[in-house]
Every structure is written in structure tokens, then in C-alpha cells.
Design a protein around this nucleic acid. Structure first.
Lengths: 196, 196
DNA sequence: ACCTGAACACCGTTCAAGT
DNA sequence: ACCTGAACACCGTTCAAGT
């Protein structure tokens, strides 16, 4: 049954039907209702899988990056992007508007909160290590960083950047360029806010 | 008929049905097919409306901001956020995964490209005026800025930031905080790349 | 030019009934 | 415990037919 879920995610991200799932699983269209209360709860299960995969991507990348907080921060961002591009259908399911009412699925809600928690920890570590400025709170910097990475991933997955690939390369390259802009800031040094 | 579209966008963002649209318009379920080739083409029309509204929000904000390129840049970003929050259903339609095959609707494709073009112009102006660094190309800085603003808007519209509103305030406030982080950068001055 | 009405193949969901 | 088969109300789309 979980096997059926995987098969489905390979197919079209949405517009997929519960009846088609049942067909692939070799059962009747009514059989899934013994395992899931509704289509939404099946999609919720897929989303939860997706969040766990995303967290795994980030954790793996962080682990491979070693101990340096900045390296870990950048690796987590790249892990996020890599997940978005390799598991695009999961990503769309997780962040699409079609999305489920997260409030009704506590385990899903938990998983979706862990992402920001990781970012927060990384930002705090980078601030402690003297990499990041402390003029703004770790929450504010985390939100900015998360927005940037998530925005890039969303635009890419939605095909909004297709015409830029020629000039800037693939998502990983774009990620490095955008991360550099984010870390350094857009401002000329002379226009930057005074340091703490 | 266009009146019917507006009514629909007020209702649920998606999961809305062509038959329901026809019902509201007071015609049979088959009547819309004299005006739109398919449901997708109706949604495409809604998306195009959405992009034009978004561009109008950005243009209005820029105009109100006066001549200073930096003020115009920030105003455009705020206009983008304001559009996302006030026209959430349009925003979801435009950037959701459900989205239409933009390639098949040339006027929609055009409208969706104008956003980046505006950002590019603003970034170039800010670089010329000495506000922004020229170490990275205007395209790279534009992509970073767009990703950040779009990411924040997406996370907010998807309800991903609901638990942060208490700590950080509404979307406009978050936008200002995130814009500050983006402009100044995350890095401590000592870790920034050398200036040009 | 625009709309109707019936039809087709699909869908999510429910429920009695089977083993 | 898990599945079936029929049923219900819905959907997108098509097409002949009306004015």
C-alpha cells in the first residue's frame, strides 16, 4: 500500500486520482478507504513523507559538510534545493496551494516545523561563530534565509526560471550565486547599516 | 462572463469547477465552451489577470515611492507582497503546481516575464546609483532579490508562517525585516567578499 | 453568435455484503 | 481485518439541436 503511494508520486504531481492509485495497487476503488479516511489524508501522508525526505537531504548534506557552521548552513541550503529538484512532485505537493489542512494532521504539522527549527539552529551557530551579524535576531535572519532558498526552489520547480538556465546554469549553480548574494547582501558597503 | 471569473476567484482558490462557474453565470454547464477552449484556458485567463494585477501593484508602489532607485526597489518588493496577501487566490493560481502550461498561452507567458524585467531594471538602476554592489551581475542580484520576496510571499500564503506572526508581525513587517537582511547581508563585515 | 440538453467517461465517497 | 460491487452526486468535455 505504501508501495502504491510511491508509484503515484512518480506520476503527475496532482490531478492524480484515488481510483488510479487503487488500480495500480490492484484493488478496487473502494479499498483505499480501509487505510485512509479520505484522499486528503493520503495526500497528507505523501506530504509527510516529503518533509521527512527533505529533512534527510538537509541532514545528510550537513553531515557531509563537517563541523564548520557556515559550511553546514550552506550545505543545508543546497540539500533543500537538491530535494526540490530531485523530488519535484513531492515538493509541489508539500507547498502547492492544493495542499492539505496541515492543522488536521499533527504528525505532518510537526514535520513541517522541523525545517525552520534546523535553519534557526544553523543561524544561531553561525552567529556564535562570528560569521553572521547579530544586529538582527536569529529568527529574522532565518526567515530571510529560508525565504530566499524556498523562493528559488519554488520558482525553479514552477518552471519560472527556465529561460534563465542558459545564462546561469542549473539550480545548484543558481543556488550558489543566490547564496553569495544573500550572505554578502545587495548593498555596497557604504550603504550598509552600521555594524553592531 | 468576465464578471463570472471574478466571482469565482473569490471562492476557493482551486477545487473550483467549471460547472459551478456556469451556474453562477446563470448559464448551462456547456455554455463556457463557447468562450474558453477548456477549463485550463479559463484558469490561464485568470492567471493572466493575476499577473497584470501584480504588475499594477508593483508599478503603483514604485510610482508612489518617487525617483530614488532604492526607494523604488523596496516599494516594488512591498507591492509584490501586498498583492500576494490581498489577492491570495490569484497568487496561488499563478504559482501553484496546478498551474497551466504557460507555453501554450503566449499572452500569459509575456505577462509572467514582465515581473523579472521590472526587477532587473530596478537592480540596474540601484547599481548605477551606487546603492548596490556590482561584483555580481544585475541578473544574479535580481534572481536573489526575487527569490527572497517570492519565497516570503509563498511561505506566507501557504500558511507556513502562521506561528511566526505573533513574534514578527504581519507580512508587511516581515517584508521589511527580510528586506533589511537581504540588503545588508547575513555576513559580518569581516567575512564579506572583498569589495569591487 | 450564443445557448440548451442529453450523453460519455471519469471522479470521491459511502455502504451493504462477502471471506 | 480487508476487500468487493453497486450506488450517489459530482465533474470536464463533446455534440447535435435550437434561436
Amino acid at each position: 500500500l505504501v508501495a502504491a503511494l510511491e508509484l503515484v508520486s512518480e506520476v503527475g504531481a496532482q490531478g492524480f486520482s484515488l481510483r488510479e492509485v487503487a488500480r495500480r495497487a490492484g484493488v478496487t476503488h473502494a479499498a483505499p478507504y480501509r487505510h485512509f479516511a479520505s484522499k486528503e489524508s493520503l495526500v497528507a501522508a505523501l506530504c509527510e513523507d516529503g518533509f521527512n525526505m527533505m529533512l534527510k537531504h538537509m541532514h545528510d548534506a550537513m553531515h557531509a559538510a563537517g563541523e564548520d557552521p557556515l559550511a553546514r548552513f550552506q550545505a543545508a541550503a543546497m540539500g533543500y534545493l537538491k530535494f526540490a529538484v530531485t523530488c519535484a512532485s513531492h515538493f509541489r505537493l508539500m507547498f502547492g496551494a492544493n495542499s492539505v489542512n496541515r492543522e488536521q494532521y499533527p504528525t505532518l504539522l510537526d514535520a513541517s516545523h522541523k525545517g525552520l527549527a534546523i535553519v534557526m539552529d544553523l543561524v544561531k551557530a553561525c552567529q556564535r561563530a562570528g560569521y553572521f551579524r547579530t544586529q538582527q535576531s536569529s529568527l529574522e535572519l532565518s526567515l530571510a534565509g529560508w525565504s530566499t532558498v524556498h523562493g528559488l526552489a519554488s520558482l525553479y520547480v514552477d518552471g519560472q526560471l527556465r529561460n534563465l538556465s542558459l545564462q546561469l546554469g542549473d539550480l545548484e549553480t543558481m543556488g550558489q550565486l543566490v547564496a553569495k548574494a544573500m550572505l554578502d547582501g545587495l548593498f555596497e558597503p557604504s550603504h550598509r547599516s552600521a555594524a553592531v
